[in-house]
Design a protein around this nucleic acid. Sequence first.
DNA 1: GATTCAGTCAAACGATTGTTTGAAACATAC
DNA 2: GTATGTTTCAAACAATCGTTTGACTGAATC
Lengths: 229, 229
Amino acid sequence: MNGTGEIRQTDTATRILDAAEVLFVEHGFEATSMRMITQRAEVNLAAVNYHFGSKDALFQGVFTRRLTPLTQLAVQSLDKLEQAAKGAPLLVDAIMHAFMDAALDIAYDPKRGGVIFVRLLSRTFVETHPVLRESLPRHYEELVGRYASATARALPHIDQIELQWRLNFAFSAIFNAFAGNNILRLFVSDPVVNARDPRLIATYLVPFVVAGLTAPAVKMGASPDVNRA
Amino acid sequence: MNGTGEIRQTDTATRILDAAEVLFVEHGFEATSMRMITQRAEVNLAAVNYHFGSKDALFQGVFTRRLTPLTQLAVQSLDKLEQAAKGAPLLVDAIMHAFMDAALDIAYDPKRGGVIFVRLLSRTFVETHPVLRESLPRHYEELVGRYASATARALPHIDQIELQWRLNFAFSAIFNAFAGNNILRLFVSDPVVNARDPRLIATYLVPFVVAGLTAPAVKMGASPDVNRA
DNA sequence: GATTCAGTCAAACGATTGTTTGAAACATAC
DNA sequence: GTATGTTTCAAACAATCGTTTGACTGAATC
């Protein structure tokens, strides 16, 4: 194998995963064909079915490979915060930074996905494929559960329903922020902003979601007083 | 045929648009076949190509039908605010309510899309089809341009780059909030929140994005002192 | 050397894709 | 009535889809 001339840089299964990852992120599941994948990976068409069983299984494998390290790292990052706090509630700012640091860690590590990883995250939002819709909650369950309860302790004056909404909005903004500058181009024909650097995005993103999460409560109790400026 | 014996409730082209709208929103472009559309619309398979020319053209037609009223209404809503202000800067809260009111107006009008419309909005974010990617900026150009400059006047202390980021985050949260409770279910296996009522969503959504937009500036921009990133 | 077995390969599988066709059905005008 | 133009319909089109097949390769085991 190794030695004189490198016959193969990476094994077939990994090359398929790498090629499929890029194509799934770029075009989505349905618009990506087996032949596109195997052609980019420079492997035989039958290799996907041999190594993964089916296109569906490959799709799931692509996401599992990236999401497992993320959830582990993000939960671990929160663990350290809570241990240091010794039972005291955390700051929302610290909680959001904990998650963002975990994501950025992977975003700057090519071995764990690199820049393509953050775009994969946004894909978990939009793909309606049953295989993914069924497996994603398993991946996100512990992650979101931990971060939700940490945020709930940080914001005891916000009732649970409103907090659930805010977390939903926050993660929507977070996951979509990294989807690439396509979204900015969607709105502004000539955006000033360069969306390539995840760390730069996080600089603006964290204060935004923290402000949203820590805003005064809408629902205090009985009457939702809707007034307009 | 059905029930009372009315010959045809709506013409063929409209029935195709209605059926395609639901299916495109539910499954996306690639996962929706011509036969699924024509079967649901109860029209012949060839009717799509006859009335619209191609599947691509139908796709574009589905979005154009809904986005045109939205952008008109949203811009019109901002016009009224600015006329009443007589040149004074608007409140961010008022600006966001102006957009949200326009969206809600359509969301509660079955003739202009109803509940399916807000889910169509989120689709404009995720679909990577070239036909849509090319036509969307044309639709959103005036809308976003007007709201961006109104927000810029409301927040003169935020420099333009940071504001562009915040608007991007805000619209990400807004557009995704209406995508259905799928997103909530994605995170929480048993969400307390019922995501069916757009008006209820807006109640929590507007304060969130307003807080994010009006947060203290990360980067000081209004000063003559130029600092580079 | 014979056997075994994971892996690769070209070729083909049936099914489904978007689109086209030409005839039939329809409405309206002469 | 005939003529004209529009819309609908069943059938077929070539192309592509995900998957399967069976022969073949190369190295390890006996």
